[in-house]
Nucleic acid binder design. Structure first.
Length: 644
RNA sequence: GCCAACUUAGCUCAGAUGGUAGAGCAACUGAUUCGUAAUCAGUAGGUCGGGAGUUCAAUUCUCCCAGUUGGCUCCA
């Protein structure tokens, strides 16, 4: 029997395993790094027979993506075997590999805690050192169900019940027999570099009606260096955590006892927000938006009319005023519609673009709250564009350009998706097609790559989502652009067309940064707390070598403030090094040092955040320097802006 | 909402078989007048998340509540 291995013809006996075949075709070193075989689309154990009719066999190396997946899946099995040795009454369920590692869900006698990890890891090491093989066997399903029923493994029995094939495959690792599709590592010796990370509750089959299981998360890598690098990344993420930085930099905090999920902005954080808001308002005005603002509370009947009461009530807060129910707004659109409807509109007025930095409240489950990234009260940079169907495409192009300009400015990379009609939806096919086409055409026209997310649209219309990737490769949904035919219908919005007839306009909901709270949270993590100069709450801090320089420092600070530069002094009776360190930890972009020399020559010594020194500069030079730095990012975004 | 862990000074964290707590940083006071990531000394700061129970005695044990954190349809 002949088979091709990496371009080489290999002669093998009929009963040969994949391992035999690969061994014959690969160098010793390469074969040693091989954990499985690939024939066509199928991944096979090395111990599996070469499938009949196969003409080519590809080695799956440990460090390849497929190899890593096998490694992690096998490590999950090793963990399960270790858990069963230590806690024999535990029932096993499933243990897949995931993007960053693996997990295994157990139904334990008592839920596991991280304190159990040491013992479990130790037992896992023992299994790895013993270099035990994973042995595959195929069994009649009925026999297997009887076997696992006898072992009192109800979850496995349930899974087998769902399997269509008359036979199932089992993998044996020491005493541990598990129902598993495989493939697995040839032996546990390949799984040397792993770590258990966390425990969590997880519903059996993800359904909250089912029993809560105890899940252990872990990760595994081909080499110790990669494992270390991954763990280091987790540490890095903790260092950049916006919740930690928010407290350290005195930007915001939470008072969980009185307002869970709602932010208290401290002066410095509020300044960052204010600058951002100021910039956004000006940018909206430049682009032909008008600023509006609706009330926070609207009578229940209005929410019934819009469909929110039927579809969104669980996420809304209600209160009562003189016996009438009022809903706290979770979205800004209703007020905007009412403003539009307050007068008879002509086609000449369209498109109308109403923008509002709208504060909305949404009830999120307590377990879902997360710093600034998931809150119950947040501010949307929201707008509603009401236009004729003909204007739709141009308006969408305008919105997407706006998105592109802003994210370029902040230095984020982003991914665009178009979500199409879901199964449960309202509206006519023609409307859906027109709107979906308009979204896609707009993206194509300005040449922005996107993916189609089939059936992921809102029930009332298709949408464009924009996800931002931060410096740690985590994705966050920010922008959203949604076509809506329902609300104009329900609120009977009209305009008078050229021919005098009454026509129904189309509406586009859009938010660009999304939630200011979330955006600032992402921004903090993206820049690790060191804001770009234009957003930094303190742009420059003047520090003195000795108290003899204090008076001059005060005058420097006053002058820079007059020039619109956010400046403060640190005149504490401390050594220079102490004050430099403090400024560095406060992540202030410019530290202006004043000693005898600077006092005499009427300037400052400039130290940048990060430690670079620019040496002596006159005050005029410093002003120009900081101004230029503040304006630099806008060159990327094709905008300009000054806060003062 | 559900599961688990956690909640001690402004922050980061120690601590005791149940006998009402300690460090570093920050704050304040004083000395020091100093050149690019921490000068020294002193002072003050806590009903140990809230409530109830057990006990001679609870921050520690038990229960309830609140909040935080990590998870909760990546599928043999």
């Amino acid at each position: 029997m002949n088979i091709t291995v990496e371009g080489k013809q290999v002669e093998i006996p009929a009963e040969a395993t994949c391992g035999d075949a690969l061994k014959a075709g690969l160098s010793g070193k390469r074969f040693k790094a091989t954990v499985a075989a690939q024939a066509g689309d199928a991944l096979l154990d090395l111990s599996a027979a070469v499938p009949a009719g196969a003409t080519e066999l590809t080695p799956v190396l440990l460090e390849s993506p497929e190899g890593l997946e096998i490694l992690r899946h096998s490590t999950a099995h090793i963990m399960a075997a270790a858990v069963l040795r230590l806690f024999p009454k535990t029932k096993v369920t499933i243990g897949p590999s995931i993007a960053t590692g693996f997990y295994y869900d157990f139904d334990p006698v008592r839920p596991f805690t991280v304190d159990d990890f040491e013992a479990i890891e130790k037992e896992m090491r023992r299994i790895v050192e013993a270099a035990e093989p994973f042995t595959r066997s195929v069994e009649d399903k009925t026999a297997s169900i009887a076997r696992f029923t006898a072992k009192d493994e109800p979850y496995k029995v349930e899974i087998m019940g769902d399997i269509q094939d008359p036979t199932v495959s089992l993998y044996t690792l020491g005493d541990f027999i598990d129902l598993c599709r495989g493939p697995h590592l040839p032996s546990t010796a390949f799984a040397k570099h792993f770590k258990l990370l966390s425990v969590a509750g997880a519903y059996w089959r993800g359904n909250e009606k089912n029993k809560m299981l105890s899940r252990i998360y872990g990760t595994a890598f081909a080499t110790e260096a990669e494992l270390k690098a991954y763990l280091h990344r987790i540490e890095e993420a903790k260092r950049r955590d916006h919740r930690k930085l928010g407290r350290e930099l005195d930007l915001f905090d939470f008072h969980e006892d009185v307002a869970p999920g709602m932010v208290f902005w401290h002066p410095k954080g509020m300044l960052v927000r204010t600058i951002l808001e100021d910039f956004l308002r000006k940018e909206h005005l430049k682009r032909g938006y008008e600023l509006v603002q609706g009330p926070q509370l609207l009578r229940r009947e209005l929410w019934e009319r819009s469909g929110h009461y039927a579809n969104y009530r669980e996420n809304m807060y209600f209160t009562e005023i003189e016996g009438d129910a009022y809903g706290v707004k979770p979205m800004n659109c209703l007020a905007h519609m009412l403003i539009y409807g307050s007068a008879l509109r002509s086609y000449r007025e369209l498109p109308v673009r109403y923008a509002e930095l709208g504060v909305v409240h949404r009830h999120e489950m307590s377990g879902a709250l997360h710093g600034l990234l998931r809150v119950r009260q947040f501010t949307q940079d929201d707008a509603h564009i009401i236009c004729t169907p003909d204007q739709l495409e141009a308006e969408i192009i305008g919105v997407i350009s706006f998105i592109r300009d802003l994210f370029t400015l902040f230095g984020f990379s982003y991914k665009i998706g178009v979500a199409t009609r879901p199964e449960k939806s309202i509206g006519t096919d023609a409307d859906w097609e027109r709107a979906t086409k308009a979204l896609i055409k707009a993206l194509e026209k300005i040449d922005i790559p996107f993916v189609i997310n089939e059936g992921d649209g809102a029930f009332y219309g298709p949408k464009i989502d924009c996800r931002v990737t931060d410096s740690l490769d985590r994705e966050w949904q920010c922008s959203t652009v949604q076509c809506d035919f329902t609300l104009p219908e329900r609120f009977e919005l009209e305009y008078v067309a050229q021919d005098g007839s009454r026509q129904r306009p189309v509406m586009v909901h859009r938010a660009i940064l999304g939630s200011l709270e979330r955006f600032i949270g992402i921004l903090i993590e993206h820049c690790a707390g060191a804001f770009p100069t234009w957003l930094a709450p303190v742009q420059a801090r003047v520090i003195t070598v000795t108290s003899q320089h204090d008076a001059y420092a005060e005058s420097v600070c006053a002058r820079l403030r007059l020039a619109g530069i956010r400046t403060e002094t640190d005149l504490r009776n401390e050594k220079l090094g102490y004050k430099v360190r403090a400024a560095q930890m406060d992540k202030i972009p410019y530290v202006l040092v004043i000693g005898d020399k600077e006092l005499e020559d009427e300037g400052v010594n400039v130290r940048l955040f990060g430690g670079d020194s620019l040496g002596f500069k006159t005050l005029a030079e410093v002003e120009a320097l900081i101004r230029e730095d503040s304006e630099a990012p806008f060159k990327r975004g094709g905008m300009n802006y000054r806060f003062s």
